[in-house]
Design a protein around this nucleic acid. Structure first.
Lengths: 347, 347
DNA sequence: ATGAAAGCGCTAACAT
DNA sequence: ATGTTAGCGCTTTCAT
C-alpha cells in the first residue's frame, strides 16, 4: 500500500543516499548545495509515488508534533465551539493540527488531559483553565512550552492570555437596566471561584453600589445534569417574585433561565426583564429578543492563535507576555426595554 | 524534566533489561513468566518517577496511534458539536484520543483531511461524508482501516453506517401539516446530492403525492456566507406568498428561515406554519415554539462509537457490516398548530 | 555536493 | 524467567 514507501525506498529507487533525500525534502537543498537537477529528480519522484513522511518517525526524531492542544470547558457549548472552529482553521492554514478536549471545568480531568497532551508532545497549549490547575500550567511554562489562556486567567500565573473586560461589561448592562427603570435586579451565576465569573459578579455589585441599590444574587451549582440547574433557577425565581429583572452570567445559564421563565409563565420584560452574558443566535429569535453581552468571538480566536503561532515560531524563548483584554458589545434588545411606562400601568 | 526518562533509564536503575520492563509495562508479565516480585518493583519505580512512554516511539513501533479521527460538516453546528462531545467521552474512556475536523462538505478539503489523518495513522475513522469522497473511503477500506459513516452514507460503498430514517421522518411531518389543514406546504433545502437531503426531499414529495397536493421546493445554494443563504430564503418567501407553511430540511436552514420570517414580519403559524429538521434548544424557546424532527443524538453517538470500538478490538477483519437506521422523534409544537380555525377567520 | 552512520524510545522475536 | 538485539522511519552530524 501507498503508505509503506519510505525515504529509503526512494533513495534506493533513485540510487542516492537517504540523507540527500531528507535534505531535499526538508528544504535544506540550497545550504547543502545539492544540484538542482537532483532536487528536481527527487521532487518529481516523490510526487509520482505520493510519498508522505511518517509523522511518528519525524516526531520521534525532532520532538515536535505540529499539534496544538485546545482545552475548553465544553466543546458543545456554542461559544467554545465557535472559538474552536476559528482557531482550527487558522491552525491548519499554518500546518498545525488540532486536538481538543472538554474539561467540564473539572480540575482532575484537566490534569489528566494536560498529561495526555504532554505525552503526545503537543507543541502549544490553548486553555480555558479551570480552578486549581495552576501547578500543571506552571509546569508547562517551566518546560518552555507555549501556553495561551483564554476566557479566564489564573491570577497567580504569568502567562499570555486573551480575555474580555468582564467587569465593565456587566457594569454596563446593569447600568442599562437601572436606566431603563428597573429597581430589583437579580444576578444569576455559578458557584465558582473562576475569575471571569467573579469579575462579572463584581461588575454587577459595583453598578448597584454606585446607584445605592441592593443586590440579589443566586449562585447555581454547576452540574452536568441540566435539570438540576434548571430546577435551581426555577426555585429561585419563584421565591424572589420581587425581582423585576435578572442578569445571567453565561449563555448556558441564560438558556436555562429562559426555559424557567417560560415555565413559570412570566412575561418578558413586563414581569421580568432579562439580559444575558454571551450573545447567541437564540437570543435574537426569541420573543422578545434578549439583550446580551456579545463577546468578540473572531477577535478572541484571532488573538489567541496569533499569539500562539508567534511563540511557536519565535527564535527562542522570547519571554514577552501578551495579555489582551478585549471589549464586548452590549446588544440591547426588547427584553430590557423601558420599564417606566409599564410601571405606570402596573403599579 | 520528567518527560525525559525512558525505558532504558528505568532498566538501568533497576539493573534489569529494558525488554523486561517493556513486557511488564505492556502486561505480558504472566506469559513471559516474570516474577511477581520484579513486576512489583518495576511498577513501583515507574509510578515513583512518573514514567510515561513516548507515544511516538510506541506508535512508530506498533503502527497504532490510539487515535480516532472524526470528520463532520462543521464542528460549530450544534448537532455535530453534541455528537462530537458524546463520542469524545466514550473514546477517552476506552483509551482513545480524538482528533476532529470540519469538512465544510468540501470534497477537496475532505480529501486533504483524510490524507492528513492517514499520515497520523489514525486507527479509526468516523465520517459524515461529503459527496465525491467515495474513492478515498474505499481506499481506507481496502487498507482494512475501520470506517463508520454517519448522518449520511454513500450508496456505492459498503461500510458500516449510522443514519436516521430521513424519508419517513419528513413524510411524517409533512403529513402532520396536512392533517393540521395546511394546503400549500413549501420545502426548503440545500442544493445537494447528499443522500440524507435527497431522502428528506423524497419524504416530502411522497407525502404530498399521497394526498394529491402539489409541491413547492426551494433549494438554497450552500455557502459559508450566511447572509447569501438568508437572502435566498427571504426572496423565496416573498415570492411565494401563497405558502401557508414551510419545512426546513436542516437546523441551519431552520434558524436562517426563522430570521427571514421574522424580518418579513410574518406571524407563525397564522401567516405561515413552520417545521424544521433537527431539534434544537432554540426551537423550544421561540414564540411560538417550533415543531421539529428530533434526531436521537445520544443513540447516534452511542451506535457510532460502539461499532467503531468493536471493529478496533475485533480479532481481525471480521467483515461484518452494521447499518443502523434510527428513528426520529417528531416534536409537535405550536408553530404547526391547527389551521382550520384560522382558515375560517381568514378566507 | 553526497553518503555513512548514529540514534530518537520502544516492542518483540529470538536467544539463553 | 530474563537479556540481547534488530529494527520502526526519520534527521542530522560528521566524513569524504
Amino acid at each position: 500500500m501507498g503508505k509503506k514507501i519510505s525515504i529509503v525506498d526512494i533513495a534506493k529507487a533513485l540510487n542516492i543516499s537517504k540523507s540527500s533525500v531528507s535534505f531535499i525534502l526538508n528544504g535544506h537543498a540550497k545550504e547543502k548545495r545539492i544540484s538542482d537537477e537532483l532536487v528536481e529528480r527527487v521532487t518529481k519522484y516523490v510526487n509520482e509515488v505520493g510519498y508522505k513522511p511518517n509523522s511518528f518517525a519525524q516526531s520521534l526524531r525532532t520532538g515536535k508534533s505540529n499539534t496544538i492542544g485546545l482545552m475548553v470547558e465544553d466543546i458543545s457549548n456554542p461559544f467554545f465551539a465557535k472559538i474552536a472552529r476559528l482557531i482550527e482553521d487558522r491552525a491548519y492554514e499554518n500546518g498545525y493540527k488540532m486536538i481538543y478536549s472538554s474539561t467540564d471545568n473539572n480540575t482532575v480531568k484537566t490534569q489528566e488531559l494536560i498529561s495526555m497532551f504532554r505525552d503526545r508532545h503537543v507543541d502549544g497549549y490553548i486553555i480555558a483553565p479551570p480552578e486549581g490547575i495552576e501547578d500543571e500550567i506552571n509546569a508547562l511554562l517551566n518546560d518552555d512550552l507555549p501556553v495561551v489562556l483564554f476566557d479566564r486567567y489564573l491570577s497567580t500565573i504569568e502567562t499570555d492570555h486573551v480575555v474580555i473586560d468582564n467587569k465593565s461589561s456587566v457594569y454596563n448592562v446593569t447600568t442599562h437596566l437601572i436606566e431603563q427603570g428597573y429597581k430589583n435586579i437579580g444576578f444569576i451565576s455559578f458557584t465558582s471561584v473562576q475569575i471571569q465569573l467573579k469579575e462579572r459578579l463584581q461588575g454587577y455589585k459595583d453598578a448597584l453600589k454606585d446607584h445605592n441599590m441592593k443586590s440579589c444574587i443566586k449562585e447555581v451549582m454547576y452540574s452536568r445534569n441540566e435539570s438540576l440547574m434548571y430546577e435551581s433557577i426555577v426555585t429561585f425565581l419563584k421565591k424572589r417574585t420581587d425581582l423585576d429583572s435578572v442578569i445571567f452570567s453565561t449563555n448556558h445559564l441564560g438558556v436555562l433561565g429562559l426555559k424557567a421563565i417560560r415555565t413559570l409563565g412570566l412575561k418578558i420584560p413586563n414581569d421580568i426583564a432579562v439580559a444575558s452574558f454571551d450573545d447567541y443566535e437564540l437570543f435574537e429569535l426569541t420573543t422578545p429578543p434578549i439583550t446580551a453581552i456579545a463577546q468578540p468571538i473572531e477577535a478572541i480566536a484571532d488573538n489567541i492563535i496569533t499569539i500562539l503561532l508567534n511563540k511557536l515560531n519565535a527564535p527562542t524563548k522570547l519571554k514577552s507576555r501578551q495579555n489582551v483584554i478585549l471589549s464586548t458589545d452590549l446588544k440591547i434588545r426588547e427584553s430590557t426595554s423601558n420599564r417606566s411606562k409599564k410601571s405606570i400601568k402596573k403599579s
